[in-house]
Amino acid sequence: MATDFTLNGKPTRFDGDPETPLLWVLRDHLGLTGTKYGCGVAQCGACTVHLDGKSRRSCVTPVSTVAGKNVTTIEGVEGKTAEAVQSAWVAIDVPQCGFCQSGQVMSAIALLAQKKRVTDEDIDNAMAGNICRCATYVRIRQAIHDASAKLGA
């Protein structure tokens, strides 16, 4: 059974097991490897994508549930908020190993898209689902504040 959805702005069809988690559809079938596997049970956030603009853990999202919806991955994310977040990330060298950072960036963009002016508590809440084993958290927090400032909050 085929599943049709919009991926990074383009109509996309997946012709396979509709229970397949979106993560593996992206990585194994569509070749978009920026979205990472880290746990498979929605504990680490490395697989975070946007589903109709909101953060979503793709490792526990059966592809059938995104039928007709808009999926955005790290490869396709764009716009003012995304630019602010990603340039803030690079400016202060947030990544260490980098493996979790696609997910961190996607969660940060979703947060600032929803609320431009954020407190530390907002960041704690929005980013709690994204583990960074290198513990780059000090810089993640700083980069989100920097991006928020740049967005004129």
């Binding site: 790290i74 990603q86 990330w89 690079v90």
Partner: peptide, 21 residues
């Protein structure tokens, strides 16, 4: 100095073993 790998690790393009196809 800015790190050499920050940009590609921020836009998802940095390649890890798991990304090899």
């Amino acid at each position: 100095l800015t790190k050499v790998d920050s940009a590609t690790k921020t836009d998802g393009s940095a390649m890890f073993t798991m990304d090899i196809r």
